[in-house]
């Protein structure tokens, strides 16, 4: 294998994005995946950062959205009300693309309170724009590490709603859209059209369904046919390594 799991995650994320889409992106691997898509098959995609940035072209890796490195060569610099309001809330964002600390079987995301081994809750980062994006985008993609403590049967706090309790509960809460993919370093998940439970779509090369299921906190829906995830192409890896994240801040 001549690529890392993080590189495969970024490439898999890029593959979910289409040309001309409007994508609201969180920091980290979602940013790498979006920049990769835009540099390859989706040149007319618009990349939005909640802080007020559209279509920047960073040449240095930033420490987060607050880093001007991430705003470099933007076409447009504005505000929360502009990006999260007049574009996202207005219904013009096709895809929300987020990282997460914990997700449950219905794609609810927790970035607020995480239990520690002593049974106490630690406060983490909260929402930022994540709740807004998960609530208002036409669909949402999550990218996160495949660990039992991150893919949980239940989470302690719903910061950003997925399908809430499954079935029709998201629509009943008055929300459109919902999570469409969860990309981990072992597999790609979708959601069952009726139950809205997480379902395995593909398993990354050199992984097995058994290992994928054994290393998560709940049993996902397993369809009869589960293909292997398509591996990254050399040109995608070259872009990630040499231009998008040369300091390996996000790819690790």
């Amino acid at each position: 294998m001549d690529y890392t799991p993080s590189e495969l995650m970024a490439v898999s994320g890029a593959r979910e994005l289409q040309d001309r889409q409007v994508v609201a992106v969180g920091v980290g691997l979602p940013m790498v995946a979006s920049l990769l898509a835009k540099r390859t098959h989706a040149p007319n995609m618009a990349i939005l950062f909640e802080i007020g940035v559209i279509d920047s072209e960073p040449i240095h890796t930033g420490v987060g959205l607050a880093d001007p490195r991430v705003w470099y060569r933007a076409k447009y610099l504005s505000s929360f009300v502009d990006i999260l309001g007049t574009l996202l809330h207005r219904g013009r964002v096709d895809v929300g693309f987020l990282g997460g600390l914990e997700v449950d079987r219905y794609g609810n995301l927790n970035t607020t309170l995480v239990g520690d081994p002593k049974g106490k809750f630690r406060h983490m980062v909260g929402s930022g724009g994540a709740n807004d994006i998960a609530s208002c985008a036409r669909k949402t993609i999550y990218i996160m590490r495949h660990e039992e403590r991150k893919l949980r049967e239940t989470i302690s706090f719903i910061t950003s709603p997925g399908y809430i309790e499954g079935g029709e509960s998201r629509a009943k809460a008055g929300l459109v859209g919902g999570p469409s993919r969860v990309i981990t370093d072992k597999a790609i998940f979708g959601f069952h059209p009726v139950t809205k439970r997480m379902s395995i779509l593909s398993v990354h090369p050199e992984n097995t369904i058994e290992d994928v299921v054994a290393t998560m906190g709940f049993e996902p829906h397993i369809p009869e046919q589960v293909p292997f995830t398509e591996p990254p192409r050399p040109d995608q890896l070259k872009l990630i390594r040499e231009e998008i994240d040369p300091e390996r801040m996000y790819i690790g």
Binding site: H89, T112, G126, S127, N131, D132, S135, I158, P161, L175
Partner: peptide, 10 residues
């Protein structure tokens, strides 16, 4: 009015 926050523990 706002579309955010619905269905969340926030």
């Amino acid at each position: 009015p706002i579309r955010s926050l619905a269905g969340s523990d926030l």
